[in-house]
Amino acid sequence: MTAQDRPPPSGDMALDVRDLRMRYGTKDVLKGVSFTAQRGEVVALLGPNGAGKTTTIEILEGFRMRSAGEVSVLGQDPAHGDEAWRARLGVVLQSWRDHGRWRVRDLLGYLARFYVPYSTAEVSRPWDVDELIKVVGLAEQTKAKVQTLSGGQRRRLDVAIGIVGRPELVFLDEPTAGFDPHARREFHDLVHRLADFENTTVLLTTHDLDEAEKLADRILVLDGGVVVANGSAEKLARELTTQAEVRWTSEGRRNIHAVTEGDPTAFVRRLLAGDPDVSELEVKRASLEDTYMALVHRAETYRPESDGAVSDGAVSDGAGPDHSEPDLAGEGPTDRAEQSEGVQS
């Protein structure tokens, strides 16, 4: 191993990204992205289209030069990654049209051969091709031409190709785009298997929150070129979904109040104490999905001012559209939902 110009990351650090920036012309696509991933961790990069997910992953794969920032992937800078480094990585691309004339087993066998010299005492490379074909559920298709595979089968072949060299780190770019629910479920099992049994680090991009929740140990929400949230699904749910909606009927009018900070119980107690006419009381916590949408929306609204200023932990500031504390009576015209919804019952 060659000497690095900064202290090498600890042995269990697979990814270390610090203040990553990317600029195309005058457009800043990444404005200071920082995160790390431990070995064996599954990290999902979540965000709307154009958030910078693919740019980030392409820089980490060594397919794109970055404008600034420090990046270490398995201890090496991907901009100067050599072939031995490449052999420890798995890349599952978004594309799926290549090698259409090849037969499944031929293609996997051909690509596996490149990894043989990189076999070590700890990691025997590559996978046994026939076993791998079974693992990804293509046993029926070994002799099939790649172009005759269905979308889901093709994607599973892509994943098999990505992991045939028994990589220590796998990049999956939108892995389940176009999957039916069944194929998606099977794919999720495969990712769990990689992380649990092979101790493979997985970095995947998706714009599907549900998928990120199911697969990832940790979710990074990327929007407008910055990380707007970083944590486990539970942590994000706990930290982000502080918002709750309280709905009730009083004097024939339907009222809605948004509690943006803390526990809605206090508000409800005061509400009930102050108004004996309350009926049809409902308290609803926003789902993680609502929060994700709100987060992305907020980041989009704030984007012009927040260039580079927002980083990890931005979520904890809890800024919401309505910061006012319980305004008793409930019929106050300042109530957020009152204005937009104002349902008369």
Binding site: E83, V91, L93, S95, W96, R97, L111, F114
Partner: peptide
């Protein structure tokens, strides 16, 4: 053609893939 359908990129993602 290989450039457009991703064959070349696949070669790039494989150790010494371009040589092969």
């Amino acid at each position: 053609v290989d450039r457009e359908d991703g064959t070349l990129l696949r070669a790039k993602a494989t150790p010494n893939g371009m040589l092969g």
